[in-house]
Design a protein around this nucleic acid. Structure first.
Lengths: 206, 206
DNA sequence: ACATTAATTGACCGGCCGGCCAGTTAAGAG
DNA sequence: CTCTTAACTGGCCGGCCGGTCAATTAATGT
């Protein structure tokens, strides 16, 4: 109302997407009113419908954009980084852990996606998971990591752990004796890296 | 309407709670109408208000009951089982993993609780987490597991992994090369148990 | 300058929502 | 047998919801 700025479809689309992301991620799709999004982005509801069609289509667009940003942000890290030895694996895990800690919106976005059972985003994340798995496979061939483990499962294990740590943060921060982010990460890395080490492989007992 | 059964407050309360649990867990609090719950439990909306007050109070009651059931179900398992050696830890993890796999409602319930940031349930789960942590601490004192790890973090690690594995099932089942429930569990156990083993402790490199 | 296109608005609609209330009816106590 | 209590019903209400539409207004091409 006080910002009669020049007409720019791309810019307003962006403002709408931003407001919608904030609200959807904070409260969930069903609990957000188009009126709220309109208010926050200084735009009429009609205009949102003009640009995105309906509420569901807007949510899809929001997920699409936010998830793409997430993927594009992570991909180069995994493409350049190698996991050819333990310390590099450590730093890769640490980096992802810190990333989620600093981007709670990503964590919550994934949470809603999981709740919806939306599988489409899974395929796209699959690309970068495969990238990480390939690094670990190389390290296995080089004899650095034990070879009796599906490398995808190794990646899954740390991705899943990082995600759930922050996803259920408020919940398990109540657990007696639990430590800080860094303390948990340290302990996780000890178990994870040592468990992947090749020397530990010959301890299989029934 | 076709079931004018004798009046029994406790029984109808139960029917309402059951219907509400199904719907809330499936669609989330905001997306469920009192009318749906009333329809499914063959009861008028007014009666639900009579018994539970309002929608939010009903949701609290539902969470309370379902979460209590979950806790009461898990507690004896952890009280009786010991983790004094690796195979017992393996079976404890396996049991919890299977439990979540067979009770998707529990997984989703936890999901909503996490999304809401509800911390109250965390305290109660803390009790059984502490139980598990105590077992591991014993094994550490006995020299079976490495002692340089916070036992609570060890428990957290596998609880969190099991939860997120099923929570994001539809999502990461799209990842190329990922295995079945059992295959993932096997690989997780290899890393987890071997990583906890005391022999692996002296491999720390900067 | 003017016509065309598209961004933007405000008013309106039918429908569903949660909550309330005044009654009705069954069970149990005396 | 009756009185009390509480389980249970049906109908009503104000309010918010998502969506539509005709009208307005700013850019853009010619």
């Amino acid at each position: 109302m006080n910002t009669p700025q020049t007409r720019d479809a791309e810019l307003t689309r962006g403002r709408i997407l931003e407001a919608a992301l904030d609200l959807f991620v904070a409260k969930g799709f069903a609990d957000v009113a188009m009126r709220e999004i309109a208010g926050r982005s200084n735009v009429t509801r009609s205009l949102i419908h003009h640009h995105f069609g309906n509420k569901e289509a807007l949510w899809e667009a929001v997920k699409e954009q936010a998830f793409s940003r997430y993927i594009e942000q992570q991909k180069p890290e995994l493409e350049h980084a190698s996991m050819a030895d333990e310390s590099l694996l450590r730093s890769a895990v640490t980096r992802y852990f810190r990333f989620l800690g600093e981007n709670p919106q990503v964590v919550r976005l994934l949470g809603w996606i999981h709740m919806e059972g939306d599988a489409s985003c899974g395929e796209r994340e699959g690309e970068i998971i495969a990238l990480g798995a390939e690094r670990i496979r190389q390290a296995q061939r080089a004899g650095v990591f034990r070879a009796d483990i599906n490398p995808v499962h190794a990646v899954t294990m740390f991705v899943v752990t990082c995600a759930q740590w922050f996803h259920g943060r408020a919940h398990h921060s109540q657990w007696p004796g639990i430590g800080s982010d860094d303390e948990f990460l340290d302990d996780f890395l000890k178990i994870f890296v040592d468990g992947l080490r090749i020397a530990a492989v010959d301890g299989n007992r029934p």
